[in-house]
């Protein structure tokens, strides 16, 4: 067997094995975001106000707000996985097969039928 042809299938298999590889990584990203801590100091209060035929109730609470200028850590994860698309496989397989068959028919028509007709005329 031709040594070039011998190497084709193993090399294709090797290429496909490369596609099966999976990888994951995570990157640290620090973004400017103030840290805000809110602490409720007292029970909520409710006040009413009547005007224009309506009753308005307002709920309020006293809170202590602590704001610290800071950076927050975000993790950017990236996962790479092998994927196989059967639809795409079918399209490629039958596309190539169709091309080969149509090329064969063209060659058959051009070099066999047309040539033999020319021979008959002569």
């Amino acid at each position: 067997m031709n040594p070039v042809r011998l190497g084709v299938i193993p090399s294709l298999l090797a290429c496909s094995v490369l596609c099966f590889g999976c990888a994951s990584s995570s990157t640290e990203i620090w973004q400017q975001q103030d840290r805000v801590d809110i602490k409720t100091l007292a029970a909520p209060t409710y006040a009413e106000d009547r005007s224009l035929g309506h009753l308005q109730v307002t709920a309020r609470e006293q809170v202590q707000v602590a704001v610290t200028p800071s950076e927050r850590l975000y993790l950017l994860h990236e996962d790479t996985e092998f994927a196989f698309d059967w639809d795409e496989f079918g399209l490629v397989f039958f596309g190539i097969l169709g091309s080969v068959v149509s090329l064969g028919i063209t060659v058959f028509l051009a070099f066999y039928l047309v040539d033999s007709n020319d021979d008959e005329k002569k």
Partner: peptide, 15 residues
């Protein structure tokens, strides 16, 4: 055909 159809999917998300 298998090689052309096979590939790698990458997904990324922020935690």
């Amino acid at each position: 055909a298998a090689l052309l159809a096979a590939g790698c999917t990458t997904r990324s998300w922020t935690e």
